[in-house]
């Protein structure tokens, strides 16, 4: 799977590192003094992830937990994200990582104890409820059966009842969490798109049915589960396809089983849009129709995106999802 595994000298004795190296025992290993000497040292084209993907195991230095951009999450609470990985094994055509990093190589940070310490510090300093999101720069669960970090977070969050943890995924890989004790403050959220959009745009991610089955399994075990309908990509039949998706969801779980559903329409920064054009020049998604929006991002026209958000929100309400369960994300209007 990996063309090479690079391991920082200072983490080579780490338990998680040993497990990962054992798991990928066919990949050549090289020890390095700092991941920064290799990762993003040269501009490595994004699509090289298909044939030449390196795995880097390292210690994250500097700030480990950061405030999210505004308009993030469900309520008015403080939202933070923590960085435990850079990049993703999947290849969604709209992924912003393709314009964010200068290399597609995967960096996994193994100093989770330090990340958790910083989370605890913020929790103790915050008087009200606070959210922590994993997966800002990677998929939270895609490699979790190998990296096995989540039990540590479960322990920590069991002692912080007012802190919420959101794991976000496009996988169906629940192996590493399904046998943990469900906690009311840990939400596993699944990004869902229509079946045709997943096939067209979410390369290597779990098929829709596999994601729905994984959700069902977690719900039956008592886990809190959220949904992201994001990004919605326009087709001539987009609304009816989402209506179908909502119907299909009802075969696996009920509205009351879902903590929240966020809805967002596809959007790009100019840089990411340029990368998408370069990497996927024949993608039907590029047919848009896109315009430059109020915040200088590339979006559908405002009437169209508001129409889409409203139409899909209304389908959710018709299916029994309550107003407070559904929120529209990253849109000023």
């Amino acid at each position: 799977m990996w063309s090479k595994i690079l391991i920082e000298d200072n983490v080579k004795e780490h338990k998680q590192v040993k497990t990962i190296v054992e798991r990928f025992n066919k990949s050549p290993v090289q020890y390095i003094s700092s991941y920064e000497d290799y990762f993003q040292k040269v501009k490595k084209p994004y699509l090289q992830k298909r044939s030449d993907l390196q795995l880097i195991l390292a210690q994250k230095k500097g700030s480990l937990v950061k405030l999210t951009p505004a308009a993030y999450g469900v309520g008015n609470e403080a939202h933070y994200y923590f960085i435990h990985a850079y990049n993703c094994i999947y290849e969604c055509q709209y992924c912003y990582l393709q314009g964010y990093f200068q290399s597609p190589d995967i960096v996994l940070f193994v100093n989770h104890d330090e990340i958790i310490e910083e989370i605890k510090q913020i929790y103790n300093d915050t008087k009200s409820e606070v959210w922590f999101h994993a997966g800002e720069f990677s998929d939270s669960l895609a490699l979790s059966h190998i990296t096995e970090e989540w039990p540590m977070y479960w322990n920590a969050f069991s002692e912080m009842p007012n802190a919420y943890l959101e794991l976000r995924t496009k996988s169906a890989n629940i192996k590493s969490i399904e046998n943990l004790q469900p906690l009311k403050n840990i939400i596993v959220s699944f990004s869902l798109s229509t079946d045709s959009a997943i096939k067209e745009y979410d390369s290597k991610t779990a098929p829709l049915k596999a994601r729905l089955s994984a959700m069902q399994k977690l719900i039956q075990k008592g886990f809190k589960v959220g949904i992201h309908f994001d990004p919605i990509i326009v087709t001539d039949t987009v609304i009816s396809e989402y209506t179908q998706l909502i119907e299909q969801m009802s075969e696996y779980f009920q509205p009351k089983d879902i903590s929240y559903i966020s809805i967002g329409v596809v959007r790009f920064t100019k840089d990411v849009y340029q990368q998408v054009q370069k990497n996927y020049p024949d993608s039907p998604m590029l047919g848009g129709p896109f315009y430059t929006s109020f915040d200088n991002k590339v979006r559908y026209s405002r009437p169209l995106r508001l129409h889409l958000l409203r139409a899909i929100e209304s389908q959710l309400h018709k299916a029994g999802y309550k107003e407070q369960q559904v929120y529209l994300c990253m849109e000023r209007d």
Partner: peptide
């Protein structure tokens, strides 16, 4: 050849690459 990198005279890698 797919991607082209450059090692500078000071033996550091040049960030810019071409495909």
């Amino acid at each position: 050849i797919r991607t082209l990198y450059r090692q500078r005279a000071d033996l550091q890698m040049e960030f810019r690459s071409f495909t």
